[in-house]
């Protein structure tokens, strides 16, 4: 088909977290611009399998930009050259014939490589487990409309809640900091009336877990915001700082 491309891929291959990885070069031929980036890798993998070589392992699932499972650092940027997209929504029309594409896993101490391009992001789960919830049991809750929430607040909480937990913020940050991710959850509950009761203990618990996981700290470069596929704003980090400092400096942890 006309318009199809031939590309050179430099792909990070690593058997597991105990072995050292290296770049291997592959050719991806006759790639349609309508393919997604992952479909291009599917094509390469099918060829590898036919040749009896282990296919390139990468995480992916929904392929519609919402599950947050896909990752890939493509030519120096998380989720590739286009802003506001996940790798599964990145299409090959963003590349040109003859281009060399360097594909690496997310790099962070807190995200160890499992195999090739797949990394372990369970640190994110543990941060959420530390306090990313409201303490309510099933049943016995008030009627949904008994808590009116101003639309602007609900909308802002929603914006924060749209984080897909892909880890692009960590991958983009020169310090491998997870603050955009953590702040998005803290923000969602800090904004909503339902989240008020544990507002300050939540901020402290989640920040403590974030630090324990070995993420770097924020130097406000804004790279996370720029690379976030769903547009989580730096405002969230400011809010988290506010919540955390207020908690530490002005709130009693226990009544006395």
């Amino acid at each position: 088909m006309s318009g199809n491309m031939n590309l050179t891929l430099k792909v990070w291959r690593q058997k597991n977290d105990k072995t050292r990885g290296k770049f291997i070069t592959y050719q991806a031929n006759n790639i349609s611009p309508d393919m997604s980036f992952l479909e291009m890798l599917d094509v390469v993998n099918e060829e590898l399998v036919r040749k009896g070589e282990d296919p390139i392992h990468f995480d992916h699932d929904c392929r519609e930009g919402i599950c947050g499972m896909c990752s890939l650092h493509i030519n120096g940027r998380p989720h590739g050259p286009k802003q506001g997209t996940t790798t599964c929504q990145l299409h090959m029309r963003s590349f040109h014939d003859g281009q060399t594409i360097v594909i690496e896993p997310w790099r962070a101490a807190a995200f160890p490589v499992i195999k090739d391009l797949a990394v372990d992001r369970s640190a994110f789960d543990r941060i959420q487990q530390a306090g990313g919830y409201i303490n309510v049991n099933t049943g016995g809750v008030p009627d949904a409309n008994s808590i009116p929430i101003p639309k602007v607040i609900a909308d802002e909480a929603f914006e924060s809640a749209t984080c897909i937990s892909c880890g692009a913020c960590v991958a983009a940050c020169k310090n491998a900091s997870a603050m955009l991710f953590v702040s998005a959850k803290i923000s969602q509950y800090a904004l909503l009336p339902q989240g008020q009761t544990e507002r300050y203990s939540r901020a402290q618990a989640m920040v403590a877990q974030m630090d324990a996981e070995g993420f770097g700290s924020c130097t406000n470069t804004g790279a996370c915001e720029a690379e976030c596929p769903v547009g989580i704003k730096l405002t969230n980090i400011a809010r988290m700082n506010r919540e955390y400092l207020t908690a530490k400096l002005f709130k009693e942890e226990e009544p006395h």
Partner: peptide, 20 residues
């Protein structure tokens, strides 16, 4: 600490694409 948070550096890193 920030350096420790990324023990393996990227081979390609386009910092200028997303930050000053």
């Amino acid at each position: 600490n920030n350096r420790k948070a990324r023990p393996v550096r990227y081979a390609a890193y386009e910092g200028s694409a997303n930050s000053a």
